[in-house]
Design a protein around this nucleic acid. Sequence first.
DNA 1: AAACGATCCAACCGCTTCAAC
DNA 2: AGTTGAAGCGGTTGGATCGTT
Length: 309
Amino acid sequence: MDVNINTGKSTSSLSSEDELDLRRGPWTVEEDLALINYIATHGEGRWNSLARCAGLKRTGKSCRLRWLNYLRPDVRRGNITLEEQLLILELHSRWGNRWSKIAQYLPGRTDNEIKNYWRTRVQKHAKQLKCDVNSKQFKDTMRYLWMPRLVERIQAAATTTEPHTTATATTSGGSSTTTVNGGPTMGFTDNFIHAPVNSNFTPENSGNSSESFGTTHVSDFGDYYGIPVNNQSVSQEYYQGNQVNYGGDNSLTSPNCNYLNNQGMDFQGVDNYMEQNSHQNWSFGLEDTTDNLWNVEDIYVLQQQFNNM
DNA sequence: AAACGATCCAACCGCTTCAAC
DNA sequence: AGTTGAAGCGGTTGGATCGTT
């Protein structure tokens, strides 16, 4: 029986693509170079004819995907940073699985990458909490626990980056600002964390090393409980008061819901900022080197809360 | 060292939307 | 208005890698 060496399929059941002897599966270095060189000369678009003209035995679709998700010079590699996590959570809470729309606000990140992050990390936490990722409980947990924690971690990490960078994170009287390397601060109308633009980002320095961004390692969340912010253990304070109250009126408060409410944290501010700065890369590389956001005790407490609802 | 399971992510698939004619 | 091809999008898959036993 004749078998197509690329697809492994019997030639008797070949599709039109197979008949053209189209390749599938992982791209080779030669294919990548051919695609890059062709686009460098002729530009992108018209993917089917591009694939033919470039001498690639691939579908236009495959070429487009390879270019957009991997070869494009501005594609950012490496771990999703804390700020990016925060953005993803916020934007997903608003738009759901609109990955490409979300990706528009994370320069250099592809919809595919964000989608993978969501499926592998966020859904994993939902699984740990034994609740559906689309349930109100989990969404509330994200909004009132996870996201405030991310904000704290961003601030804490920014603090610990000094004096390696000029990062500062201050909170006083309900305001919070973060500035790194003298970059512009985020123009949130409220007191959302002010993250700067990383104007130094290039594909070359976008490796896994957080050093490439001039920032320091962010510790595991388990260790996070000891990170002092403003000369006090915010996280401990946070955790001690960490009792989510689900009122009969569906109101939901938590200690760091206080962060949201008392400090006037209003995600309209995120909106405003993103509208103004969507063309910019605003991450400053506080890579989350772990997805261990919850420790065992967290999960237990949350499960208890869910069970009591 | 080997086997196994879990996790990650690049790539594919099918469907929808858009634009040109 | 209808058709067709290109592009975009979200869901899914499968192989590579990593961690555990």
